[in-house]
Amino acid sequence: MTDQIDNLEALMKQSLAGDQRAYAALLHEISRLLRPFLAKRLSFTNEVDDLLQEILISIHKARHTYDGNRPCKPWVYAIAKFRLQDHLRAHYSDQLHHADDLSEMEEYLQQDVTEITLSYESISGEVEKLPEKQAIILRLMHQEGYTAKEVAEKIGMKESAVKVAAHRAYKVLRQKLGR
């Protein structure tokens, strides 16, 4: 254990001096150290990989704040925790946003989402001005007659996400058309 810690500090000192091989070895050592730390806190392997990459980039950016005269591990973990918190914050705020949309849609989901009182053709100009994904969803649902489930399968989204996107698009259209 002590050897590993000494090793990290020695590698870091060499890296700061511009030794590329030492730096690669240091980053490999750090990812080996952080992978289980992240895996314990995140559910998906791809999330672990993405975050690990972010952490390595952050370590690269902040390496001048390490002087080689204090333990390296707490410095590495401070950056890793900081990025993990950032990631979790973004993840949960995204989920919360999604949950808000779903609760807003609670009544709406009971209805047929393909039902719209105006013809698609009469508002197609406005639909094209919507964000690309929303426009595609509305086009598929109202021009080509697909159900939300079929659209979801077609464009590789979840059905609930398609309904949420359609709902948002309707909201924008309603505001634009003054209804």
């Binding site: 590329q20 690669a24 990989d49 001048h64």
Partner: peptide, 17 residues
């Protein structure tokens, strides 16, 4: 990860703490 590490290592220059 390996690709990234290689890239970062190639980019590294001496850094003044």
């Amino acid at each position: 990860i390996n690709e990234l590490i290689d890239k970062l290592a190639q980019d590294t220059v001496p850094v003044r703490p």
